[in-house]
Write a protein that binds this DNA or RNA. Structure first.
Length: 469
RNA sequence: GCAGUUGUAGCUCAGUUGGUUAGAGCGCUUGAUUGUGGAUCAAGAGGUCGGUGGUUCAAAUCCACCCAACUGUACCA
């Protein structure tokens, strides 16, 4: 590399550095979620970051869009990919270890996942998912139980019931409806479901257009619709308006099966006195592997973007029943249901949540270094602090005291300890309080500083009692 | 992928009908106190004006192409 051509310190698009403040909150939230899942009887599992490409999805790297969706590399003769979610690896794991696992197998997993696609606002190519799943039982009471666990977990993170709501629906209702309307073509089913899924973004009028011929977006770009007939569209739109599944007349067998499942779920909620849910026929979930109840957790407080504009934040997690996923590997009876929390999105929202403002970051107490000759003295102070479990360090650089204070300020240190000739001679330490940053001191010389209320001289034996963090 | 908008200092941006040495605020460094951070004042460092090519005596400014970012939209196991 030549002297004048410097490297650009940039990150690949869609990736992000994460700093101390964010990580502290993230770790705290992850551990709250973990502990609550353990409390609710779930085991932990960690699968590897890479999987064989064909194991985790249908996009094989040698098809027409080689890298689309996933990050893949060729390993000897096989293509392997970074996982794009935690559900596909779970299905693989269950298929591989089925005989050894208790049934149902209740597990949770937290970890990074990677998606090789265009990043958007709040959407990255590397992010954390937190999944909780129950594999091996088709009883939808397990689905209901998942919702209770999730709701309880959000409470433990600090959200109140009015801050979020669990919305539930059942794919079987949609399946029944589409069958009744004679919408049987796979592609048409897909575009119909996708159109409904967009209700929150494009509104009911937008959905109507997308079910019909298509819709133009703000920039003038045209999106092709599902091309349904007028009476089909009308029936779908009126279905989306139902508020109470008990009042819907079942259209066919699969439809009434869906209703029955919702009733079981509702009864289970009542048993546990759980009310923070709502039936919402517009909940769809994008993925097509869902086969039964589906659910989403939505925040109800306002969230702003970087430009301070309120945005439709959407869900912080969702999931549902997928009974066929393990069957891709073996002919096993492994019906499953799961819920996934988008941890990064949750944190993004929580950072703005009033009742959960980040606690003030507290840096280490910095023992200033006035002369290397006093290092032994500083070490005694450091030991006392650390023995008392107080985060602390000796500044080892050769900078001026002024610079050391600037450093401590940036680290958000609550105190600095200043010991020079005088203090060492008298077995004392000077403790300077940095916490109250509102007042600029007007002391101008050393004598003034000595008598300043913001700093105090004590003996090295009992200076600890002056430190209050 | 498609469409629209925008690319000037680390960040946020100004830059006149094309015209001398490209600016401001914030941040950063140093100093005003050789033992005192956050305020104030002063000085300083920091730019391939997104890239390449073209028009012109002259381009940050005009033209073409490319690249990137943002917004919307599509795809998303």
């Amino acid at each position: 590399m030549s002297e004048n051509k410097k490297l650009n310190p940039e990150l690949p698009s869609g990736f992000k550095d994460r700093i101390n403040e964010e990580l502290l909150l993230r770790d705290e939230i992850i551990s709250l979620i973990k502990n609550n899942f353990i409390l609710n009887g779930f085991d932990q599992l960690e699968t590897s970051s890479f999987e064989y490409s064909d194991v985790i999805g249908k996009f094989l790297p040698d098809q027409d869009r080689p890298q689309s969706g996933v990050f893949s590399i060729k390993d000897e003769n096989d293509w392997i990919s970074l996982r794009y979610d935690l559900t596909a690896p779970l299905a693989r794991y269950v298929a591989k270890n089925y005989d050894l696992l208790p049934r149902p197998f209740k597990r949770f997993q937290v970890g990074q996942v990677w998606r090789n696609e265009k990043p958007g606002p709040g959407r990255f190519r590397e992010f954390i998912q937190f999944d909780i799943d129950i594999v091996g039982d088709s009883n939808v009471q397990y689905d209901a139980d998942l919702c209770l666990v999730i709701s309880d977990t959000l409470n433990k993170i600090g959200l109140k019931n009015q801050d979020f709501k669990i919305r539930i629906n059942n794919r079987k209702l949609l399946q029944g409806l589409l069958e009744d309307l004679k919408i049987l073509d796979y592609k048409q089913i897909q575009s119909t479901l996708r159109a409904i899924d967009k209700l929150d973004r494009v509104g009911i009028k937008g959905v109507e257009l997308l079910l019909g011929n298509g819709r133009k977006d703000k920039s003038g770009d045209f999106t092709k619709g599902a091309e349904l007939k007028k009476n089909q569209i009308d029936k779908i739109i009126s279905f989306l308006d139902f508020k109470d599944f008990n009042k819907i007349t079942p259209l066919n067998e699969i439809f009434s099966e869906g209703i029955k499942e919702l009733i079981i779920i509702k009864n289970y909620f009542e048993l546990f006195n759980f009310k923070n849910f709502v039936f919402d026929p517009t909940v769809i979930r994008g993925l097509d592997y869902y086969t039964g109840p589906i659910f989403e957790a939505n925040l109800s407080f306002k969230v702003k973007n970087e430009k301070d504009v309120e945005i439709e934040f959407g869900s912080i997690g969702g999931g549902g029943r997928y009974d066929k996923l393990v069957n891709r590997f073996k002919n096993l009876n492994a019906p499953a249901t799961g819920f996934s929390i988008g941890v990064d999105r949750l944190i993004y929202a929580l950072l703005q949540y009033d009742d959960l403002k980040i606690k003030n970051i507290i840096g280490p107490i910095v023992i200033c270094n006035l002369d290397e000759a006093y290092l032994g003295y500083y070490r005694q102070i450091l030991s006392k602090l650390r023995d008392a479990n107080i985060c602390s360090e000796i500044y080892l650089g050769k900078n001026s005291l002024k610079n050391q204070l600037k450093y401590a300020d940036k680290r958000k240190s609550p105190y600095v300890i200043i010991c020079g000739e005088d203090e060492v001679k008298n077995n004392e330490v000077t403790i300077k309080n940095l916490k109250d940053t509102d007042k600029v001191s007007d002391a101008i010389n050393r004598e003034d500083w000595k008598s300043s209320s913001k700093q105090k001289k004590c003996s090295i034996e009992n200076f600890l009692k002056e430190i209050k963090i």
